[in-house]
């Protein structure tokens, strides 16, 4: 899951990037409103964290612009004053949620998870595919009750596949949502990670979950599902 942080304070942006990165999210940072609005339109993000007080273009304007371009990515606004007026204005401009500074990082994580859950079909806490289960809160993965340990990137890839269960995902899409902006997309890294993931998830099980769609990309699906 790829997140864009638009925040002018280097330290606030810094700990958000670090903390979210350690939770296996791919994170990009823009330090002013203009850059933020640009990146939000240039890349396909799963979530945007947007500060209201920004140089060049304030958060309300950025939000308006993004929504105007029909980008439906969930937006969490960061505000300083928790006046009702600000909250209403932010929500009206198209924000999905807001956090008042100073906030707890755990709350950021919870809100991020809640917003990501909204875009999936079933609003349960855990993601499921046949007997494979992924809990985004504890990051525990089990298949047929057996615990599976994954590296950060493997986890991020699996989460993305599971959130989009039944949909064909191209390599480009996977790169955009699992890796951040500093990633060199010319390598066959997706291929490699899918291979690692298959070793851990599908190997030794009757029903394979990760399928290759030749010439297009990959899909996670259950046997009885038709696409």
């Amino acid at each position: 899951m790829r997140i864009l942080i638009i925040e002018d304070d280097k330290k606030v942006a810094g700990f958000l990037k670090k903390g979210l990165g350690e939770e296996h999210y791919a994170v990009d940072v823009a330090y002013d409103g203009e850059d933020g609005a640009y990146w939000a339109q240039a890349n396909d993000y799963d979530l945007i964290i947007l500060d209201i007080m920004l140089p060049k273009k304030d958060g309300m304007e950025v939000c308006k612009e993004i929504r105007h371009k029909n980008i439906a990515t969930p937006i969490i606004m960061l505000t300083v004053q928790d006046t009702l007026e600000d909250k209403i204005k932010g929500l009206d401009e198209g924000a999905d949620d807001y956090l008042t500074k100073p906030f707890s990082f755990e709350e950021v994580l919870a809100r991020v998870r809640a917003l990501l859950r909204r875009t999936q079909k079933y609003k349960t806490r855990t993601l499921k595919a046949v007997d494979l289960e992924l809990d985004p809160v504890t990051r525990k993965i089990t298949r047929a009750g057996k615990k599976i340990t994954l590296t950060g990137k493997e986890y991020a890839l699996l989460e993305y596949l599971m959130r989009n269960k039944g949909k064909v995902l191209t390599e480009a899409m996977i790169i955009e949502h699992v890796w951040d902006i500093n990633f060199d997309s010319l390598t066959n890294v997706v291929n490699v990670y899918v291979h690692h993931l298959r070793q851990k998830i599908d190997k030794g099980f009757e029903e394979k979950l990760i399928h290759t769609v030749r010439g297009v990309g990959y899909i996670m699906k259950e046997e009885d599902e038709d696409i």
Binding site: D9, K11, G14, F15, G19, P102, F103, F105
Partner: peptide, 13 residues
Amino acid sequence: KTPLTAIRGEIEV
């Protein structure tokens, strides 16, 4: 509040 946010967040992370 901005420095406070940074302080709290950095400690928590």
